[in-house]
Nucleic acid binder design. Structure first.
Lengths: 193, 193, 193, 193
DNA sequence: AATGAATGAGCGTTCATTCAT
DNA sequence: TATGAATGAACGCTCATTCAT
């Protein structure tokens, strides 16, 4: 009996371990040797599981997208008012700040290569985006698409500011502020049909 | 009787032309040869003006930071209510969307290398950040720092969404929405002393 | 009236200042920029006086060869016995050790390039060699060519040992020893016709 | 199941083949491409075995030093008088003249770079020097350190003269002469205790 | 499946040399 | 005469990728 290894399973494990590497150094700056070394395998093995560096990167992005990026749901359930929920969201984001910063790095890197190279757009991004929308709806109960995008954009912006070492911005405070603003705004609006 | 060239002036001209290149391909992916070719000079000449690729990149970031990043002021003067001003700001950003997307690319790239390499933090970033704050104050008349960061974060997030090809997000609409939300929010608050 | 500068005179001055540079770094490792900088002129000026790096180097070797390499004569005159003269020679060499080490560096470098490149053998070396012979004769009164070469070889070897950081070898002691050996050897020999 | 190559063994083989190259062109003038080509490998392979040009050079010098530089011992055994032994030594050196000339080139080059760069002094040189002393003692039976250095310096000087294309100097004749001089000198001395 | 030796194009950078001023 | 900007081939070195084992 040969060594039974689930090829696909192992591939995914390797993939997971690549996240930090790509995020911290960037696609172009990280080398296959460094990746292999970090994974504890040889370059040959790496190429056994991934046809090329680009494919590895694309699969990584795909995997991250597919994963429940917002593990938030579970954590945010049970809260009551919009303001309370926004606060909980803020805390959740702040707690996972490092992860989301890396995720931003990866996305920006991916988009850059998508623009300039032959990297295939992969609809994983679209799917992820739709998931995000759904989460906002599920958690915050907001259905107006414009408001959803507003919230998502703010979150992106907050993480971007943190990524840029802006010590003045507090994710939790800003999320709480967003909660208040949303409340104030929605109270003024006539309830949509 | 040397060849008459204003060394410093020419250096800055070269620098300006590098912006798109670094933004579109990223620091690690663009090569000095490509840069030289794009600038219409030889690699030797490039190195006559910049001691290294890293120095070139740092000087570029410095230059962009120093430049009035928001030429907005002039364009936004004369508007009246906060909502009107936010709408004008939205239009301005939308008009210069491509530029700001590139600027985000550059900043993210710079931060990544700042983290992982010996790239000097250069306080140009800090200065730029302070400028941004000032602009929000001057143009929108908002003094509360938290609100300022809220607005800046949202703007960053909007541009980031556009960078990621999110066709669902409209910078102008979102800015207008921000205007309304700010108005609603400020009306509810007791006037600060 | 134009600025009157003796082109040839200035060329020789520049040449003299190059000695240390070539000796310390080697022909291939020293750059024309470094030389120019050390001389306090521009590379353009350097090329105004010397058609190429190789020509500069060849002229330098030529100049050193032509110069009275052994300023020894004057310093060694008046001494009496062979042993005394060898001792004086030893002191003289030890005093100028650094210079002679550099001179060895230069010669070895030159020979290496002569072998492997198209560098012209320049009979300056031959002339220098003849001078050396003459000096041995004049100072030490030794006419036997084999003995002359023996002495010159030993001197070369001593300097070479010093160049190689051999702290065990003392030029003065060894020269004194040579004096004694020569004396012992000559006494045993029947006087040549 | 890797490709079967004895890494260390192969490294040493490559090293051996580098001797002539470095000796004939000099450290700074020989290029890694030339070396690779001469060895019949690619530059990539060269760097697979040596981390840098400098390391390659240092390892080379180390290897030569460690090797029995004087294979002389075997060859010189069985001779009787000092004069006979010196003659045998002379013949041996003359026979391997080309090798020793190259070895001198290498040593001078190494010392130059040791002086001017961060090349580590490597005590291989010291060890080699001690070996040389031992050889003089073993072969010639001379224990006086000063005489040992005298002999070694003369040998160095003779090879240096040959390196400089001096056709007038004959290594064998000079060694024979040295034999006679030593004999004459030692006869005159009171035997040391 | 797994290894790591091997490749060679291409990278950042340097340098002898030229030439307009 | 003197300058230093400009060139581009070539340097030391790296890297994604291939392949014999």
């Amino acid at each position: 009996m040969p060594k039974i290894v689930d090829h696909d399973q192992y591939r995914k494990e390797l993939l997971s371990k690549c996240f930090d590497l790509f995020a911290e150094k960037g696609y172009a700056a990280i080398t296959m040797r460094q990746i292999a070394e970090s994974l504890g395998v040889s370059t040959g093995t790496l190429y056994h599981y991934f046809p090329s560096k680009q494919a590895l990167f694309e699969q990584l992005v795909e995997q991250i997208c597919e994963r429940d990026v917002f593990l938030a749901k579970a954590e945010l359930e049970g809260t009551q008012t919009l303001a309370e929920r926004m606060e909980a969201l803020g805390k959740f984001l702040a707690k996972n700040e490092d992860y989301y910063i890396k995720w931003i790095y990866l996305q920006v890197d991916f988009c850059q290569h998508q623009d300039s190279k032959e990297m295939q757009g992969s609809n994983a991004f679209q799917r992820a985006t739709e998931q995000y929308e759904q989460i906002i709806y599920d958690i915050l109960g907001i259905q107006d698409p414009m408001l959803t995008w507003f919230i998502l954009s703010l979150i992106d912006g907050l993480i971007l500011e943190r990524l840029m070492n802006n010590e003045m911005v507090s994710i939790t405070e800003q999320c709480a502020l967003l909660g208040k603003m949303l409340t104030a705004y929605l109270e003024k609006q006539p309830t949509p049909p």
